[in-house]
C-alpha cells in the first residue's frame, strides 16, 4: 500500500525547460567518446595475457621502485605543502596588506604554468650551479636536482595550490563567533587557533592533501627534468609507462597505468573515510 504513490511517480519528471534530450545527448557523446571508451581500453588491455603476466610486470624491481618513489615522494610533498598552503590561505583570508591580491593570484601560478616550463625552471634553480642548489650544496652538502629529493621539490610546487585553494573557502566561512567565544573564555590567541580554528580546518586540509597527492602521483612534466631518471633510484611511474610504450609493451604499460589509478583511488577513498570519521566525531 505504502509503495503505491512511489510507483505512480514517473521515472523522469516532466521538465519545465526544453532541451534535455539534446543536452544529455551531446554530453553523453562527448563523455563517452573522449573519456569512457578510451578508459575502457585501459581497463581491458592488461588482462590479455592473464593475471600472472600482470603480476610479473608489477613486481619487476624497477616498477616496484617506481611505485615506492611515486607514492612516497607524492605523500611527502603533500605533507610539506600542507602547512605552506595553510599559511598562504590564512594570510590572504585573514589579513589586509598591500600586495594581498597579487599573492592571491600568485597561488594559482602552478595551475597556469605549463608543466614542462615548471620542470625546466626547477631544474635550473636546484642544479648545483643554480640559485638555490649552489647554496644548499655549499652550506649543507645537499644535492637536490637529479635525485629523489628533486622529485619531492617539484611535487611540492605542483600540490601547493590544491591545498591552499581547498582550505581558503572553509577558512573564509568559519564563524568568528567560535573564536570570540574561546577568547571570552580566557583562551589566548594561539590557544584559540590551535584548539578551535585548526580542528575546524582539518577536514579541508585532508581533502586538499588528497587532491594535491593525487595530482602529484600522476605528474610528469614538472618531474622528469629534475628527477634525473636513474633506474631504481629516480624513475617515477608515469615515466615507466612511457618506457614500456617505447618497448611496444602495451599490456605492461596498461597494467602499470591501471594499478596506479586503482592505488590512487584507494588512498583517496581511505582519506574520505578518515574525513567522514572526523566529521562524525565532532559535536
Amino acid at each position: 500500500m505504502s509503495t503505491a504513490p512511489l510507483l505512480r511517480r514517473p521515472f523522469l519528471r516532466r521538465q519545465a525547460l526544453p532541451g534535455r534530450g539534446l543536452a544529455l545527448g551531446v554530453t553523453l557523446m562527448w563523455l563517452g567518446g573522449f573519456i569512457l571508451i578510451p578508459l575502457a581500453a585501459l581497463a581491458l588491455r592488461p588482462w590479455e595475457k592473464g593475471l600472472p603476466a600482470i603480476w610479473e610486470v608489477l613486481t619487476e624491481p624497477r616498477v616496484l621502485a617506481g611505485f615506492r618513489l611515486s607514492f612516497g615522494a607524492s605523500a611527502l610533498a603533500a605533507l610539506i605543502a600542507a602547512p605552506l598552503g595553510l599559511l598562504l590561505a590564512w594570510v590572504i583570508t585573514r589579513y589586509r596588506f598591500p600586495g594581498r591580491r597579487s599573492l592571491d593570484a600568485l597561488i594559482d601560478l602552478p595551475f597556469a604554468l605549463p608543466t614542462a616550463v615548471a620542470g625546466l625552471a626547477m631544474t635550473a634553480i636546484f642544479a648545483n650551479n643554480g640559485w638555490v642548489g649552489s647554496l644548499l650544496e655549499g652550506w649543507f652538502g645537499w644535492k637536490i636536482a637529479f635525485t629523489p629529493a628533486g622529485v619531492v621539490v617539484a611535487l611540492v610546487f605542483v600540490s601547493l595550490p590544491f591545498i591552499a585553494r581547498t582550505v581558503e573557502p572553509v577558512l573564509r566561512d568559519l564563524p568568528r563567533e567560535a573564536e570570540e567565544a574561546a577568547a571570552t573564555l580566557g583562551a589566548t590567541r594561539l590557544q584559540t587557533i590551535r584548539r578551535v580554528v585548526l580542528p575546524a580546518l582539518l577536514p579541508a586540509l585532508i581533502t586538499g592533501f588528497g587532491l594535491g597527492f593525487a595530482r602529484a602521483v600522476g605528474e610528469y612534466g614538472s618531474v622528469i627534468f629534475i628527477a634525473g631518471n636513474m633506474p631504481m633510484v629516480s624513475e617515477i611511474l608515469p615515466l615507466l609507462i612511457v618506457v614500456k610504450l617505447e618497448q611496444f609493451d602495451y599490456a605492461g604499460a596498461a597494467a602499470i597505468g591501471l594499478a596506479m589509478l586503482l592505488a590512487a583511488f584507494l588512498i583517496l577513498l581511505a582519506l574520505n573515510l578518515l574525513q567522514h570519521g572526523l566529521r562524525r566525531g565532532r559535536p
Partner: peptide
C-alpha cells in the same frame, strides 16, 4: 565522470589513445 580526467595522470591520458589507435592497439 566529467571531473574524472582531472584525477588521471597526463601520461595515462595519452596511453589510452595508444591502446586504442596504436600499431598494436
Amino acid at each position: 565522470l566529467i571531473e574524472l580526467p582531472f584525477s588521471v595522470s597526463p601520461v595515462i591520458s595519452g596511453l589510452v589513445y595508444v591502446l586504442l589507435f596504436g600499431a598494436q592497439g
